[in-house]
Amino acid sequence: MDRIKRLFDSKKNEKILSVYFTAGFPKKDSTVDVIKALSDGGVDMIEIGIPFSDPMADGPVIQQSSQKALDNGMTQNLLFEQLKDIRKVTDIPLILMGYINTAMQFGFENLCKKAVEVGIDGFIIPDIPLEEYSSQYKPIVEKYGLKFILLITPETPEERIRKIDSASSGFIYMVSSASTTGAQNSFSEDKQRYFKKIADMNLKNPTLVGFGVSNKATFDAACEHSRGAIIGSAFIRALEEQPTVQDAVKSLISKL
């Protein structure tokens, strides 16, 4: 069952909200609680971050959540242990997001195997570039029937966007701006032009906008020329500020 495709097919006229959080944050054992709260709160898709000591594509908020998760004792084995009954909790698409180094140590094929076992739908690994993905990892990902979501950015030339669209599956992660992850207050007209340009390319994959989406203004702007948006840092901040994970989800949804 292709949960990602089902989501995009069923929400043709509505915007999709995908939320990122770091596994093992704020507490070692909060992973499942956070997934349940997000799912109950009406979020359409969840990206589960595998914490890494050196997350070079992330801004300070997600970096700190990763460090905290590692300090809490989070590991990849523990994550799969936590996720073993996750499909009894929710049926929305779940994506693992992490960095190549931890995947290599776990064994990339082992990661795919474990992911399928617990019901994960796909991966986002921002430091596996298109070329390395196509030559080394794509056959393994496809063997396990998983999706692999590649990123495009305002710096990505059109020809390369076509190649990324062709290699990517599930959807394309459209990075809003030249930046690391982290909240921004508004999206400029430049960004709108870039989102529109991509929309006009009629890619095979749907797109979701991420990086800098934090409130109603940025969410609506992100959605204008895409199928939806991804929120990460703003939710991590809510998890830090609110007393419970349920309150954090409520606080996030209320801002949208």
């Binding site: 594509a57 921002p126 596996i128 390395e132 990123l151 710096e155 990505t156 030339p157 930046s179």
Partner: peptide, 12 residues
Amino acid sequence: GGAYVPEILQKN
């Protein structure tokens, strides 16, 4: 070796 950098740096 190789060049494992995020997409934003690929053009550079």
